[in-house]
C-alpha cells in the first residue's frame, strides 16, 4: 500500500461563518504502481484529497499515510521536503503554476529546490520535457507565451522533473484537444508500466480514463462511494448518477441495443472496440 487515508476529515474554515466540509471521514487505500482515476462532481472533495497527499493540507481528523510518511491530524511539524519531492502535484490551472521568465527555469525550479546539482537538474528537465512531448525550442520561451495545451504540458513536466514516485494530477486534460488528451493519458499510463510510478488522475470525464486506469475511485460529499475497476463502475448506474457522471457512450449504446433486441446487456470493457466486437458477434449469430 502506497497511500492510505484513515477516517480523514477536513473542514474549510476560512470561507464564511460555517465551516464547509471538504473530507468527511474518508477511507481509501491505493496500491503502488497503478494508474488510479478519482472521479466526482465539483465540490465532492477530490481536490481536497489530492492536497492532503503531500501535506499542503493537513487533516483535522484521521491519519494519512503516504509512502513511508505518516501525516497525523494535529501534527503541526513541518512537512519534510522529501515528501514534496516524492509526491508531485499538478494543479488544475497551468497558468497559475508557472511563474519564471522562461519555461526552462520553471522546470528547473522543483529539482533545484530539492537540492539537485545543476547538471542533474538540467538533465531531469530535458527528460521531463521530452516525456510530455514539449518541444525543446519552447524551453527558452516565456511560459506566458505558450498555448494553453503547451502550458499544460509544461506544468506536468515541471512536476515530473523532480522525479516523484507518486504523480497526482488535478483535471490534467481540461484545456487539451482530444488528440493531446489521448496522448497524455497514454504517456501517464506508460509511467506506471515502465517506471512503476503511481499515477492519480482526478477528472470528471470517465470516458477518457476507461481504457487506461487500473482503479477507479468515486468520491461524493468527502467520502469514497465506490472503488473498483472500470468494468464494475460503468454498470453501476446508481453510483454514476450519484456522482453526476455519465456512463461511456459505448455502454449506453450497448444498453439501448440490448433492450431493443430483448437480450441482456453484455458485461464488456467499456470502449468502442469492445462494443464493435460485441455487435459484430450479434450480427454474425443472427445471419
Amino acid at each position: 500500500m502506497v497511500i492510505s487515508f484513515e477516517e480523514v476529515s477536513y473542514r474549510y474554515r476560512d470561507r464564511g461563518m460555517t465551516p464547509i466540509l471538504g473530507l468527511d471521514g474518508l477511507n481509501l487505500e491505493l496500491e503502488e504502481g497503478r494508474m488510479i482515476a478519482v472521479l466526482g462532481a465539483p465540490g465532492s472533495g477530490k481536490s481536497t484529497m489530492l492536497q492532503h497527499m503531500n501535506g499542503l493540507m493537513r487533516a483535522d481528523e484521521g491519519l494519512v499515510r503516504i509512502l513511508d510518511f505518516n501525516l497525523e491530524s494535529g501534527d503541526s511539524r513541518k512537512i519534510p521536503p522529501k515528501l514534496r519531492q516524492r509526491v508531485g502535484l499538478v494543479f488544475q490551472y497551468p497558468e497559475q503554476q508557472l511563474f519564471e521568465d522562461t519555461v526552462e527555469k520553471d522546470l528547473l525550479f522543483g529539482p533545484l529546490n530539492f537540492g539537485w546539482s545543476e547538471a542533474e537538474a538540467a538533465e531531469a528537465v530535458r527528460r521531463a520535457a521530452f516525456f510530455v512531448g514539449l518541444d525543446e525550442a519552447l524551453l527558452a520561451q516565456s511560459p506566458f507565451k505558450l498555448s494553453s495545451g503547451q502550458m499544460r504540458k509544461a506544468a506536468v513536466a515541471a512536476v515530473l522533473a523532480a522525479d516523484p514516485d507518486i504523480l497526482a494530477l488535478d483535471e490534467p486534460t481540461a484545456s487539451l484537444d482530444p488528440a493531446s488528451r489521448e496522448d497524455l493519458m497514454q504517456r501517464l499510463h506508460g509511467l506506471t508500466k515502465a517506471e512503476g510510478k503511481t499515477v492519480i488522475v482526478v477528472t470528471h470525464r470517465l470516458e477518457e480514463l476507461v481504457s487506461y486506469a487500473d482503479d477507479f475511485v468515486v468520491i461524493k460529499g468527502g467520502r469514497v462511494i465506490f472503488q473498483g475497476t472500470a468494468r464494475e463502475l460503468v454498470h453501476k448506474q446508481e453510483v454514476l448518477e450519484e456522482a453526476g457522471l455519465m456512463a461511456p457512450s459505448s455502454v449506453r449504446i450497448a444498453g439501448t441495443l440490448a433492450a431493443q433486441l430483448g437480450i441482456e446487456t453484455p458485461e464488456m470493457l467499456p470502449d468502442a472496440a469492445a462494443l464493435a466486437a460485441w455487435y459484430a458477434g450479434l450480427l454474425e449469430s443472427q445471419s
Binding site: R84, L89, F91, Q96, N113
Partner: peptide, 16 residues
C-alpha cells in the same frame, strides 16, 4: 484565491 493556488503549487514543488 489565485495567488493562494499559485503559492500552493510552488510549495508542492519544494518552495521553502
Amino acid at each position: 484565491e489565485e495567488a493562494e493556488r499559485l503559492w500552493k503549487a510552488l510549495q508542492s514543488r519544494g518552495l521553502d
